[in-house]
Design a protein around this nucleic acid. Structure first.
Lengths: 250, 250
DNA sequence: CGGTCAATTGATCAGTGTCAAGGCAGGTGG
DNA sequence: CCACCTGCCTTGACACTGATCAATTGACCG
């Protein structure tokens, strides 16, 4: 559970006892293949999971079969923490790539929440950052063009992975297909591919196989109208990691 | 604060001491005209507000001036409860119609959360229902057509108001302009008007002035692919109030 | 009685979806 | 080691949803 501690400390502050209590949480490890359901819509799980490895997603489907990926989760994320207090899943949680997850019983988390107010705040806060990410999805889907969404996706997934220590140097892994990305962005695979081609031809990004390279971060962020505050990383991180540090001046 | 107690008891259970503690919360009443900002993006409020009267919304804007309403709040809702643990607003909270709000200091809520675990759970749960509503927004904006969004809007706003005791008999008030609804649905006002015309011509709904009438609930819900579980009202309410009770059999 | 804002309708245009075909890469079996 | 297969990516042609621009009507209000 060191990963959980690290995750929470990225956005909240804990003391030594909090850390110890988190590290002592009981858990079970389970591995999933690609595209396996973890919890299905309507279930009432009694465990929360932590992504240790792989990408996980929550998705919904409409009658005509249209799929919408609601949120993508990368290692360190807690995809179903909310079901501590919202028992019934309203959508399905599934792996995208082969994944490893740690399952922590709700009972243990309730105990922790009762005993350690700071941990309660950190966990609550984590669920609220999730909410904030949904708000950003709404902005994307409601008002951004396909090209804007594509650029925003590149910024977001790179930054999230960099913060999690999984990426560096404006390069990262996007271990999912273009069709899945399109399901996330609310467009068709064909159109995603074309939007990508535009950004590529403008020299902003490159996506080869499963690796994404950001070639022109400043201009990419402009196209995306990317503002990282929705990740609530704290003022320091946000500006340092991405916008200021290694970017050519605007 | 009786309204807060009632709101929380719609989705969570409380005991008598919980209720008393909620009713004793300190608060200040403030009135707003139409379209006044309550908290602006970037602010760090020290009060949470409860909508007593009027409609309130949270919205974002992109560079080209495109507005997206993220969520609409009706009397009884807690639009900024999340800022207890997510200090910085990432969007603006504003009234739509003239509104009356009660402001409760964060300090009082922290005290309540520390002393009354059941109230903590109820409040946390309320923020999670917000999240669930955002997920439904994502499904709407990502995969529903303009007509589907329009139908979904009618179902959602009627049901929420009925549950809050503000509507009945398949008729309710929608006290906002078509332009504002369009900003919520991620389409243009002209196109919303046309979608509305389609639903009207099919005899599903009527929108005259500020009153919405649902003429064919069953068929409207089909068009909307409306599933109320995202409101997490508890099994009883959801099915009773809207789908079963007074609807002609499918 | 005019003025302003919202609702409505028409005409045209742009962005995105759909259908279809071809190419490329990685995996599997002979 | 090669041949095939299967997904995925890419590109083209065309259709359609929703956006834009513009004008008219209607309601409320000073």
């Amino acid at each position: 559970m060191g990963m959980l501690q690290a995750k929470l400390e990225r956005t909240s502050s804990l003391d030594e006892e909090d850390r110890a209590a988190i590290r002592e949480l009981p858990y079970t490890i389970r591995r999933f293949g690609a595209r396996e359901d973890i919890f299905r819509s309507g279930e009432k799980p009694t465990y929360c999971c932590l992504v240790l490895d792989g990408w996980v997603h929550r998705y919904g489907t409409l009658g005509d079969g249209a799929r919408q990926i609601l949120l993508l989760y990368i290692p360190g994320d807690l995809p179903d923490l909310q079901h501590l207090f919202l028992p019934q899943l309203d959508h399905t949680l599934a792996s995208i790539t082969a994944s490893t997850l740690a399952f922590v019983p709700h009972t243990a988390l309730f105990g922790l929440i009762g005993r350690r107010p700071r941990v309660m705040a950190a966990l609550w806060r984590d669920t609220l950052i999730d909410t904030s990410m949904y708000r950003e999805r709404v902005m994307c889907l409601g008002r951004r063009s396909a090209i804007g969404r594509t650029a925003h996706f590149a910024c977001e997934m790179y930054l999230r992975q960099e913060v999690a220590g999984l990426a560096d140097d404006l390069r990262c892994t996007i271990p999912i297909t273009q069709g899945q990305i399109a399901d996330f962005l609310g467009i068709t695979p064909v159109h995603f591919n074309r939007s990508l081609a535009v950004l590529r031809s403008r020299g902003l990004i490159e996506l080869n196989g499963r690796t994404l390279s950001i070639l022109e971060p400043r201009r990419l962020m402009d196209v995306a109208e990317f503002d990282a505050t929705f990740l609530h990383l704290g003022d320091d991180l946000t500006s340092l990691l991405f916008s200021e540090c290694r970017l050519p001046a605007a």
